[in-house]
Design a protein around this nucleic acid. Sequence first.
DNA 1: GCTTGCTATGGAATCCATTTCATATATTAC
DNA 2: GTAATATATGAAATGGATTCCATAGCAAGC
Lengths: 325, 325
Amino acid sequence: MANIKEIARIAGVSVTTVSRVLNNHPYVSDIKRAAVLNTIEQLNYSRNMNAVHLITGRTGAIAVILPYINLYYFSIVMDGLAHEALNAQYRLILCQSNYAAEEELKVLEMLRNKEIDGVVIVSTALQPEVIEEYTDYGPVITCQDSGERRFSSVYIEHYEAFWDGLQYLSSKGYRKIGYCEGRQNGSSASIRQSAFRAFLSERNLPFREEWMVYDCMTEEDGAGVALSLLDMQDRPEVLIITGDHVAAGLIIEARKHGLRIPEDLAVMGFDNQPIGRLLDITTIDNHLYDMGAAAFRIIHEQIRTGSRVPVHRKLDYEIIERGTV
Amino acid sequence: MANIKEIARIAGVSVTTVSRVLNNHPYVSDIKRAAVLNTIEQLNYSRNMNAVHLITGRTGAIAVILPYINLYYFSIVMDGLAHEALNAQYRLILCQSNYAAEEELKVLEMLRNKEIDGVVIVSTALQPEVIEEYTDYGPVITCQDSGERRFSSVYIEHYEAFWDGLQYLSSKGYRKIGYCEGRQNGSSASIRQSAFRAFLSERNLPFREEWMVYDCMTEEDGAGVALSLLDMQDRPEVLIITGDHVAAGLIIEARKHGLRIPEDLAVMGFDNQPIGRLLDITTIDNHLYDMGAAAFRIIHEQIRTGSRVPVHRKLDYEIIERGTV
DNA sequence: GCTTGCTATGGAATCCATTTCATATATTAC
DNA sequence: GTAATATATGAAATGGATTCCATAGCAAGC
């Protein structure tokens, strides 16, 4: 396969000139430019980008760490990231980690090895301190609030959002509030839980362990919760559920068994998913697409400018009032 | 930043020996190995992978072309790909193309530029002939039946699957069959359409243009179809819909308006999505996860062995009988 | 007429690891 | 005791681009 040396030889110029043509540098005469272009065409030449990456120290690629690509939450964030990456002519390397720390570490090692220019961590099993050890090698951004760290972040205030949601329910007159949480893994789960407890305690509302459901991640899990509620002596009046798809599972199953929503059981979801729109589920939209897009723009800017000053961007959330509360 | 030359100098060995240690080659004495390892540790050395990629001509990365990552169909295929990639220690570069041909071409150019070792095309706007032009540069696999091409494929026989689905409906006594198709873009859409027409014609079943809906992609689109059916004088008895989420939108909206499923309107979906399980939608499962996994395994094998002989693997589908037919 | 600045070009150094080849010693085989 | 093989090591070539530096012609400014 041809290389620039050969192009140079055949076109009768130096490799420098070939490189200039390749990179649209000025200071190449029209005649030589044409000769180079012509030779490139003739030899069906294409650049070996690995050589370019080696000499420039950049790769034009950013890695994305997330646990499961087929969950709505993550696929939307990824959509936002991918859209911006396409605009910026950047490539995204997807690491679906299943929350395996050693896989996530491998990605951070790629940053160290200069295989990538930056890392976007959408959700992780790693401690912030571990991530900080890699900030010398390139920009890193997380999609959760990690406090004042040496890496950037975009996040919504889960505490505040959850609190606001509870306040909304409270304002509607509900006192007996239950709560279905998704994976316990992420940091946001525990933040929401503390918001939940603090709110109940401040408002003097009843806390019942049987109204709490953990690791409630799928539609089927939601349906299971509906079934368990049927047997319950003292049911919550409303459930706040982190994920509209889970809420949908619950609502559909509950209705099958004659429960009226919201009269017998009100439901508030999260994420503003299509299925939630369809079932008219009241929800908190935390603007996942925007989160992905913002994450990309921030890290891209940091790569471009070489700035290593961490940026922390707080994003809006939005309570969407619909028919299940 | 340190390189192997410096490691070699400080450890008092040659760069060759350092490279051997790095790559676990035999024929390094324990003493020198320890010295090298020690120096690596001390200097906090890490390999510049771009140099490795340049000299070896491999990158350990495969690109994936798909139009939208946040559609169930694609996110499941991606899940299958990502799972296998993790096992094989390969990296996936995601190109969310929105069916923009020039973006898809850029990815194929990456293959030419040696930035990646192979390309998985889940769905594309490109003609097979265009893809074939790149098969000299590395293995390519598509997730659709493209006939006997110079690139590999994994696919389900959409014609056969669709025909089977129609036969199933027919066996249940339905004669008036409608059809909601997703994006017109993919090649599979037109295959299904010809299966549909051929089936109706063979069985002497009525074809009505108003029972056909095209570009029906979202839950809301499904709901829209339900509304339009309400006004219809002569309604189909059953709808076959390419996507359970669309079917779900239709079913939920139809029920709101008093239509009984399947008595007033039967529905058959596609993809065996969670929402379909929840709503008990009869569906055709075309094993998307397996498709992604198989695609990866095939292309990975081709990269490993250097074989350029295209592989064509046909996958199973499965009619899942539930309550909407 | 001399300095300054712009355009145009190429030589050579650089990025960093892998791998071939050559060489040397140690061990095993018969 | 000699031939054959296994182990151990390093020098140098290799992969393919970018970029710094040096050089030179030519126009403009005063």
